[in-house]
Design a protein around this nucleic acid. Structure first.
Length: 117
DNA sequence: TCCTTGACCATTA
DNA sequence: ATAATGGCCAAGG
């Protein structure tokens, strides 16, 4: 064999890197992750990656739709699990939705910038 | 090969 | 707030 590790496509690696960088207690969207990974308009790919690499311990619960709603169908196993994991790290989930103005990753960045003023 | 199905999204109406 | 449209694209029938 070549070098033990299975080769992960660069695009996949870029997306995984962004997902792993989401701070605990904050959330972001599929599209935002794609954009940060240098792959604008490829939100769908992020969803596929999350499923494909579920063996890795990723903070998948911090990934929501662009409007802050959980992507899984209400009542589904994934939906319930994600809600629990988010609440566990202090994120308020009301009606299957998170207030992005409050818990969004971007907002976290804004706070950092404000501190410099 | 074609068609459908998604852990999606921005825009337009 | 809901709905249609077009973009995106791998996987499975």
């Amino acid at each position: 064999m070549k070098s033990g590790t299975a080769s992960i496509p660069p695009e996949h690696a870029a997306i995984l890197r962004v997902i792993r960088a989401i701070p605990r207690g904050r959330v972001t969207s599929y599209g935002e992750i794609a954009a940060r990974a240098g792959l604008p308009r490829r939100a769908r790919m992020v969803g596929r990656i999350l499923g494909a690499y579920s063996a890795l311990k990723l903070p998948w619960q911090r990934v929501l739709r662009s409007d802050g709603r959980i992507a899984f169908a209400r009542g589904s196993r994934g939906y319930r699990e994600q809600r629990v994991l988010l609440v566990d790290e202090g994120v308020v989930v009301a009606h299957g939705r998170v207030d992005l103005a409050r818990y969004g990753w971007q907002r976290d960045l804004d706070a950092e910038l404000w501190k410099m003023a």
